[in-house]
């Protein structure tokens, strides 16, 4: 059960053809570029947020904020990286803010947090999965923010640690450690009780 990937590393060195149109003064060209941008990125960004935040409304708000910021600050994109890395950096920080805002209290045990996440998912009308998938998503949603991001980018979107490092500004070593911690916690939570 692998959701759509955000991008593949082999595409990293190409800039999208609608990119120049976003800064064009001609409204017709700009509008076409807007559609091109939205067609390419609206769903990937929404589902990236949804995997991290789980709740539809939160993912809607966060993904909207990402796209607004990207379009408003497109002038500041200096093409020193690929567009996808630049966009994912914005998405990473927006997601971090959203997750920190509703961070669970430190004194809630991991089991209790996982149990709460499971019942949330089971009650969510917009979530449809079998038991294993539900347990996986619940386990992901109880991870600390950065581990959650690294796990989603690496496991679902299959980003290389190098690319994740470019997005997050962290070292590859730190990211590997985060992924290791995340995988360990997820394994512990996903294993079905005997």
């Amino acid at each position: 059960m692998m959701p759509k990937k955000i991008s593949k590393d082999k595409e990293d060195f190409e800039q999208p053809d609608w990119l120049d149109g976003l800064t064009a003064s001609n409204p017709h060209i700009q509008s076409k570029a807007f559609e091109g941008f939205m067609n390419a990125w609206q769903k990937p960004i929404y589902f990236y947020m949804r995997k991290l935040l789980v709740n539809h409304q939160d993912a809607d708000d966060a993904s909207q904020e990402v796209m607004i910021q990207v379009l408003k600050s497109i002038d500041t994109f200096q093409r020193k990286s690929t567009f996808s890395t630049w966009l994912m950096t914005i998405a990473y920080h927006k997601a971090m803010d959203a997750m920190r805002k509703r961070k669970t209290h430190a004194w809630v045990s991991l089991d209790a947090a996982n149990h709460a996440a499971l019942s949330h998912l089971n009650e969510d009308a917009l979530f449809d999965a079998d038991e294993a998938e539900t347990r996986l998503q619940a386990a992901i949603s109880t991870l600390p923010p950065r581990q959650r991001q690294v796990f989603v980018l690496r496991y679902f979107d299959e980003f290389s640690f190098r690319k994740i490092a470019a997005i997050t500004g962290k070292t590859e070593g730190a990211l590997k450690a985060s992924f290791h911690h995340a995988s360990k916690k997820i394994r512990a939570n996903v294993v079905l009780p005997a």
Binding site: K51, D60, A129
Partner: peptide
């Protein structure tokens, strides 16, 4: 419509609606 095998669904017309909201805000 959603990515292949994703367990996450969205309400009907959500993406069109979101696109409209973004355009309006801009």
């Amino acid at each position: 419509d959603m990515p292949t095998s994703s367990p996450f669904n969205v309400p009907d017309g959500f993406f069109d609606d979101q696109r409209l909201r973004i355009r309006q805000r801009l």
